[in-house]
């Protein structure tokens, strides 16, 4: 089974209650992301970088407080179809260089390097990942 590294924006769309949104394009985007995630989950093992989890934990803590954040994070983290990967020390350094060269956020460079190391694809709605030609997007 192939592997897909999920970016933070995908998880944000997943946890979003689209009934609270007003803009039709945003609602469509969230619904499309949920459908696509379901497909990706069916056919692949899901990888989450620890960086993504930190970003998600911060967002959740800000939006719903510690108790609800904890419940949601537990459901994400303790899922057998999902594995958490942490950047290696050399990747933490290399990401700095790539971030500067490609003008891509440092955290996204870490996700890219994890995907590259694992031979995995990336699932994200951030177009910056298109700057990396040696890793496939789903």
């Amino acid at each position: 089974m192939s592997e897909v590294v999920i970016d933070t924006n995908v998880l944000v769309y997943l946890i979003t209650d689209e009934r609270a949104l007003k803009n039709k394009d945003q609602i469509d985007l969230v619904q499309r992301a949920k459908r696509k995630f379901k497909e990706v989950l069916r056919e692949n093992n899901i990888i989450l970088s620890s960086v993504t989890l930190v970003e998600l934990a911060n967002i959740l803590n800000y939006k719903v407080g510690v108790d609800e954040s904890r419940k949601l994070l537990e459901k994400i983290i303790f899922n057998e179809k999902l594995r958490i990967e942490t950047p290696k020390p050399d990747e933490l350094i290399e990401a700095l260089t790539i971030s500067n060269e490609k003008n891509v956020k440092y955290t996204d460079c870490l996700i890219y390097l994890i995907a590259k190391r694992l031979g995995a694809k990336i699932f994200s709605y951030d177009t910056d990942f298109e700057k990396f030609t040696d890793v496939e997007m789903v």
Binding site: L14, I15, T16, L21, L60, K63, L72, K75
Partner: peptide
């Protein structure tokens, strides 16, 4: 986990 958080547009 779906739909648990209300974000604004």
């Amino acid at each position: 986990i779906s739909g648990k958080v209300k974000f604004t547009d």
